[in-house]
């Protein structure tokens, strides 16, 4: 596993324990959606992974790096896009690229130009003249162009308009290599649907569910029905019908994973990682 979090404990001073024995493992080349309610510690977890915060106990490793050491060899391989990032307002996008790009050995200027063009931005504009969403696009473009091995995006679609969210998905999907691991923390679940290949749901200080999206659609059916379905793992009333998750039957067509439904199911303890195992076991039997 390229990212390994073992028995992580963390709390802010004079605050209740945020993570209590958290375990999390991510395979190389994954695009992970880290989902959770507000205040569950998604951003804190990204801060811990990037070395901005230190664990109280437990270990975190990204490849062979220990983030808290903040060694340059690690920092050159990780790009953390904070939700509310500081920026040198007087710099133009071009100047920002020149100054900041020099820090990242794999930074690709032509890739940066291309992504900026995809977002419809010009390099001569000063950062302070941009709107929040436009600045977000600049930093997203920059982050992807660093070609860092680890990309940590905290609420990357915050501030983006609807067309930009679609471009964001296209740009991210088109600019990642198999060696790169991307973790996207968000509460805007729909924004990362069709982008992520792995989902992790953080709740009550632990990763409540961590699964491959393909595996989920292989095991479970996410659907809607006018009647309350039998054998459903989780149901939600929507309008006059129901949304449900249930085990997928043999040779039944796969359905796209509804992240929102899955998220709610996990939060309501309707399903967890064991549910996947149980589904697997029942199929084997």
């Amino acid at each position: 596993m390229i990212v390994s979090v073992k028995d992580l404990n963390f709390s802010y001073p004079k605050r209740p324990q945020l993570f209590d024995g958290l375990h999390w493992y991510i395979p190389e080349g994954s695009v992970v959606g880290l989902l959770g309610k507000n205040g569950t510690g998604k951003s804190t977890l990204l801060h811990l992974l990037s070395g901005l915060l230190f664990p109280k106990s437990g270990t975190i490793t990204l490849a062979s790096h220990i983030p808290r050491e903040r060694k340059p060899s690690f920092l050159a391989e990780v790009f953390f896009l904070a939700d509310d990032i500081a920026y040198p307002g007087n710099m133009s996008i071009g100047a920002y690229e020149k100054i900041m790009g020099a820090f990242y050995p794999e930074f690709d200027s032509s890739q940066f130009d291309q992504i900026l063009a995809d977002f419809g931005l010009e390099k001569k504009v000063k950062l302070k003249e941009l709107s929040l969403g436009e600045r977000k696009k600049v930093f997203l473009s920059f982050g992807l162009s660093t070609n860092c091995r680890f990309l940590l995006f905290d609420e990357p679609t915050n501030g983006l308009d609807i067309p930009s969210k679609s471009i964001f998905r296209k740009v991210v999907a088109g600019n990642l290599t198999d060696e790169q691991t991307l973790i996207i923390s968000t509460h805007l679940v729909a924004d990362v649907e069709n982008l992520i290949d792995r989902v992790a749901i953080l709740n009550n200080g632990k990763i409540q569910l961590d699964a491959d999206v393909l595996e989920l659609s292989d095991r479970w059916v996410f659907g809607t029905s006018s009647n309350l379905p039998d054998e459903a793992l989780h149901t939600e009333k929507v309008g006059t019908g129901y949304q449900f998750i249930r085990s997928r039957k043999h040779q039944e067509p796969q359905t796209p994973v509804s992240l929102e439904l899955l998220f709610n199911a996990v939060l309501h303890n309707s399903i967890n990682e064991n549910s996947i195992l149980q589904t697997q076991n029942s199929e084997v039997l």
Binding site: R70, K71, L75, D84, A86
Partner: peptide
């Protein structure tokens, strides 16, 4: 001095000594 710029500064690829 402020959280946002500190985040940017601390993860700039460079050692604490540098």
């Amino acid at each position: 001095r402020d959280k946002r710029s500190a985040q940017l500064y601390l993860i700039l690829p460079g050692s604490a000594m540098e």
